Amino acid sequence: MNNWFKFVCFTLLAIFNAKINAQDKIIVGEKESVFSKILNENREIWIHLPKTYNDNSINPAKYPVIYLLDGEINFEYYAGMTDFLSKPPYADIPECIVVGIKNTERTRDLTPTKSQKKSPVNPNITLFSDSGGSENFTKFIQEELKPFIHKKYRAQDYSVLVGHSFGGLFAIHTFLTHPEAFNAYVANDPSLWWDNKVLISKTKDYLEKNKKFPAKKSLYVTQADNEEQQKNWDSDMTQAIDEFRTIVEKNGTLNYKHRFFEGEVHGTVSYPGNYEALKFVFKGFRTNIKEFAKNPGLLEEEYKRFSDTVGAEFIPSEPYLNVIIKFMKSNGFKESETYFMNVKNKLYPKTK
């Protein structure tokens, strides 16, 4: 009897500790599986939801979606980066859903044309023989992945595509061939050398046909310090990015930024690049809470201005309005407090 009592106590203690440990875990995201008829395979997707997503004290809201290529490499740090940059009261970006797309056949999915490049060691071997499937991959994202995300999660109709290397090549190719697919594109050290710089030709063809880039779209391109760090680096990478930059900047109709990162090589540039890209894509989103005490109407004016710039509607989030109301109350700005309470009740009416 004594041993049985000890066993029961030990079991209950183990269960209790397991629950405590489970509660102590910090969860970055969740995994989903999407079967693609287009690609004829299951695709693993990693989802990071904003911290307020499941907050029952506020009204359910919709969030912009960032589609992150090479998810298995970039997801963990990128999720934390979006949480950090969206933290009120001085958020640089809105809270976002991050969708990390894990690779299966990376070269196939991210390259726009079939490689004809022969191995310098054995001319009978074609390098990147599985290349040229980016059109199908774009179709998968547009016709299968996006509908899945919008059906299962509260996704806003504003999206960003983020890629590095071949992923950057894919982002620029998608921008040129399907500019309507995303609102903003980020290409970190893109492999624009691909197939004798085929995307340089496509960029020239696009402008010759359309005269200018589409309105209210953003493109952010980073360039690593490859030649400085590695003297033997093939300069095709650098030359192609520079050539693309010259064409885009000469046209001058696109919300475009090129950033050279001194001291960052091809494998490291995406981390600082993604941080700066988020601030560029959402430039104008940050507001100054202290100015609202004197001019409460400025909040709605600035959100309208930002919405007009990016071509999508953004409104102050309920958590941010709560922060503003608390600030006004603690600093004795009664009229401003009342004003923002009315704004909150208008945007987020209480439901019974």
Rank of each mutant, 00 (worst) to 15 (best):
K212E: 13
T82Y: 02
Y185N: 05
M237D: 10
R286T: 08
E72C: 03
T174I: 12
R43F: 01
I20P: 12
K6H: 09
P190G: 12
V121W: 11
I73C: 01
K326H: 12
T126R: 07
L347T: 03
W46T: 08
G332Y: 12
K290V: 12
F7M: 14
Q230K: 14
H258A: 13
C9M: 15
P190E: 13
V98C: 02
Y53L: 06
S129N: 14
G167N: 01
G273H: 06
K250H: 12
Y78M: 08
A187N: 07
H258C: 03
P50S: 05
K87R: 13
F280C: 12
N226Y: 02
R305Y: 09
F182G: 05
H164I: 02
P214G: 09
K114S: 13
G29H: 00
L278I: 00
N183R: 07
L69A: 03
L161S: 06
A171F: 13
L299D: 08
K352I: 09
D70S: 06
N17V: 09
S115W: 11
I125T: 07
R43P: 07
P123C: 03
K344D: 10
A181P: 04
F175D: 01
E243D: 12
T246G: 00
Q23N: 15
L127N: 09
A22W: 09
R43W: 04
R259D: 10
F175S: 07
S336E: 11
L207D: 01
Y206P: 09
F282C: 02
F10H: 09
F244V: 06
L207A: 00
L39A: 11
K202Y: 10
K202F: 13
V34L: 10
S86K: 04
F10L: 15
A293Y: 09
G163N: 05
F333H: 13
